[in-house]
Every structure is written in C-alpha cells, then in structure tokens.
Simulated assay, not measured.
Amino acid sequence: MAPEAQRQALRLVDRSPSITGAEIVAELVPPPQFEHASFESYRPDLNFPSQLEAVERLNSFAQAWRSQRPSGFFSRTRKPKDDLPGIYLDGGFGVGKTHLLAALWHTAPGPKYFGTFIEYTALVGALGYANTVKQLRGARLICIDEFELDDPGDTMVMTRLLGELVATGTRVAATSNTPPNSLGEGRFAAVDFLREIQAMSANFETVRIDGLDYRRRDTAGNAVAVPDESLRHMVGTLLERGSRVTDDGFGALIRHLGTVHPSKYIKMIQAVDVIALTDVFLLTDQTDALRLVAFIDRVYDAEIPIIASGLPLGEVFDAEMMAGGYRKKYLRAQSRMVALTTGELPPHAD
C-alpha cells in the first residue's frame, strides 16, 4: 500500500456494520478498562462510607457461590439479604458502580455474562427470545450495566428473561439509569428500578453508593475544543505515527447515528485509535442527543480519545434537555466526554 493511502483518515459515517447474535454473546464481557477490575483495585472516596460498605456487601453476595443451597427467585417470602439472588447498585454516575459490577463478574465462576441493557435486548432481537434463554441458561451470573427503564416493553422482556434464568439458579447484578422525569440524581433510581421489575423486586437487595463523580475529583471538568487548524495538524501527526484516526463532521455523524442501531455502535468504532470531530454544535433535538449519549457510552468503554473543534463537547446539550427527564443521562455523557477530550495530542496506541 502506498504511503499516502496509509495516511488517509477513516470516516465513521462510512461504517454501517451488521452484528450477529454470536458476536453479541462474544462481547458480553466487561469493557477493556475493567478487564482487571477487582474489589481491591476499587478506589473508594473515604468521605462517603457507603462506598466501602458496597464492597463489603458485594463480597458477601459473592460468597453464595460457595454454598450449594438453592434460592428460587419467585419464592413467596422474602429471604435474608445474603440469600437474595439479585443485587442492585444504586448511585449517581462516576461513583464506581461499573467497576464494582465488573469486579463481581471477575469473582464469579463461569459461565457468566456482562453487558449493557442495550446489548441484552439486541441479543433478543438477533436470536429471538427462546434462543436467548437457551444461550444464557446455566449462567452463574448475569451482570446488567445501565439497566434502561425508559421503554416499558424492553423492561418487561428483560424481566421475563431474567425470571426464567434465575429460576434455574442464575444470580443477577445490575445498575440502572434514572427513567424519564426522575430528577433525583440517582436518589429515586432504586425505587423506580424495583417498581419496573415488579415480580422480581422482593428478591433484589439494593446497595446505595453515594459520592462524587471520580472523573471530576482531580480535574477542572472541561471538555476542550481546539481550533480547526490545530485539529487538522493533530490528525496529520497521528496519521504519520500510524494511528488509526476517524475524521468526521459532527453533524454528519449525528445524522449517521440515526441510521445505525445503538447495539451496532461498538462495531462502528472497532480498530479506531482516535476520533476527530469537526464543527461541534449545540443539539436541540432530543432523539439526536440520546443517540449521542449511547455512542459516547461505547466510545468511553473502548477508551478512545476524542479531539474536536467547534463547541466543547461537554456543552452540546441545550438547557431544556439539561432540565428535563433525561438529565442524568446527559450529565453522565458530559462527564465521559470531559474524560475523553483533553485538547492535547493523544499518545500513539501500541
């Protein structure tokens, strides 16, 4: 391949991937940054004792795998905490819920699965309900990060799926997002979660994790935008280093995200080292904004740095969105975009 061809930037808008059920199952593991997550590596904020208490409760939950006592999921009487087959981590974004969920997954014996709510519902869409149950049956642990409460239909499907799985001994651990019109920054998340999962609620122990967003503990909390000419120079330098860089206009990317199911966003960013976005602007359409949130979640999981020009990415959601029912999702996305965009030349990926 000619040197000039090697230095050509890629474009996300040229990627319209498909995804199979087998590929989804293969991805049901913790994201790369949590590949080695453990209870010992969790860094609690000592100003919030509930973080250490959460580690203790999850360790206790993990002890059940050493016991042979069965625990039916739909028993008529509530079980003691240590016997409950489900545990729900309740707290704001950035307090380490995903780290602890991944640490629990690493502690559990296999077979086991770890994925977002979107990944599990996409699996049902790809395989069908009966084949999804067959695929996941026998799992010792199912971890569900970002359990979505916005869509009653999807929630009912997941409730039914989990009910069938845990009836045969599978244990479940979950975190969730706050549903529409709940502005409590996580305070109401547990109540909403337990209400939505209905028949299973009495079998979940809720573990509250208080604290501040760890991504903002030691930073000013700004997503940096760079001038267009600086962005062009950075892209050129990265390409000369051999980095795999995508270069897209922000508006074009937002339009393209509307043509790709969110479960496929992970494949859009495969084999990408750095994402460059030009002419970032304020979003006023909530559908576009929620697609960006889902996309940023996958970029954050893949630890791909972003360089961007125009409006700082942390400011793309308008005031009406930030005051509305999806406020918590936008705040989480803002936090992640702050972590991903520094305005400095990202290091070359090995």
Score class of each variant (00 low, 15 high):
Pro305Glu: 06
Ala108Leu: 06
Pro312Asn: 15
Gln135Leu: 09
Trp105Cys: 09
Ala289Phe: 04
Ile307Tyr: 03
Leu231Val: 07
Glu164Trp: 05
Phe250Gly: 02
Phe34Met: 11
Thr159Ile: 07
Ala102Arg: 02
His233Trp: 14
Val29Pro: 01
Val25Ile: 15
Phe93Ser: 08
Asp90Ala: 04
Lys79Cys: 13
Val235Gln: 01
His261Leu: 07
Ala5Thr: 07
Phe117Ile: 03
Pro80Met: 14
Glu27Phe: 05
Leu253Pro: 01
Pro49Glu: 11
Asp154Ser: 12
Tyr330Gln: 01
Glu196Cys: 05
Glu40Trp: 15
Ala102Pro: 07
Asn131His: 10
Arg232Trp: 06
Ala139Glu: 04
Tyr88His: 07
Leu340Val: 07
Lys328Pro: 00
Glu185Asn: 12
Gln135Cys: 14
Asp247Phe: 03
Val224Asn: 05
Asp318Asn: 15
Ala130Cys: 15
Asp150Cys: 10
Glu35Trp: 03
Leu183Lys: 00
Ala252Thr: 03
Asp150Gln: 14
Tyr326Cys: 01
Leu12Phe: 07
Arg217Val: 09
Met156Trp: 07
Gln63Leu: 14
Pro179Leu: 04
Met322His: 14
Ile296Ala: 00
Leu161Gln: 11
Ala5Tyr: 10
Leu12Arg: 08
Gly86Gln: 10
Ala102Asn: 04
Leu183His: 04
Leu212Glu: 13
Ser50Arg: 08
Ile304Lys: 03
Thr155His: 08
Ala323Phe: 06
Ile118Met: 03
Ala349Lys: 14
Met268Glu: 02
Ser71Thr: 09
Gly324Cys: 08
Ala333Leu: 03
His106Asn: 08
Pro347Phe: 13
Pro30Ser: 09
Ala37Cys: 13
Ala54Glu: 04
Asn59Tyr: 04
Val191Ser: 06
Gly236Ser: 11
Ile307Met: 08
Ala108His: 06
Gly249Tyr: 07
Thr121Asp: 02
Met337Asn: 11
Pro312Arg: 15
Pro111Ala: 06
Thr219Arg: 14
Ser67Asp: 15
His99Glu: 09
Ala271Lys: 03
Gln198Cys: 13
Ala173Trp: 08
Phe39Gln: 14
Glu240Val: 11
Ile19Leu: 14
Leu52Ala: 10
Ser230Arg: 12
Val29Glu: 02
Glu240Asn: 08
Lys112Leu: 05
Thr278Ile: 04
Arg160Met: 09
Thr121Glu: 00
Lys97Asn: 04
Gln51Ala: 09
Asp273Val: 12
Glu303Tyr: 00
Tyr300Gln: 06
Pro31Asn: 03
Lys81Glu: 14
Thr219His: 13
Val13Leu: 04
Leu290Cys: 05
Pro312Glu: 14
Glu27Ile: 06
Ala64Asp: 00
Phe250Ser: 02
Arg66Ser: 11
Leu212Val: 06
Ile254Met: 09
Leu84Ile: 10
Arg78Phe: 02
Ala130Met: 13
Thr168Leu: 06
Gln135Glu: 15
Arg43Pro: 02
Asp151Arg: 13
Leu28Pro: 01
Glu185Ile: 08
Thr107Asp: 10
Tyr300Ile: 04
Leu257Pro: 05
Arg216Cys: 00
Ala252Asp: 12
Asn59Leu: 08
Leu290Asn: 07
Leu165Arg: 13
Tyr326Lys: 00
Asp210Arg: 10
Phe114His: 04
Leu165Met: 15
Leu331Pro: 00
Glu164Cys: 06
Asp279Cys: 05
Ala167His: 11
Phe295Gly: 02
Glu205Trp: 05
Val157Ser: 05
Gly310Ile: 05
Gly211Asn: 12
His99Asn: 11
Asn222Cys: 10
Asp90Gln: 08
Met321Ala: 09
Gly128His: 12
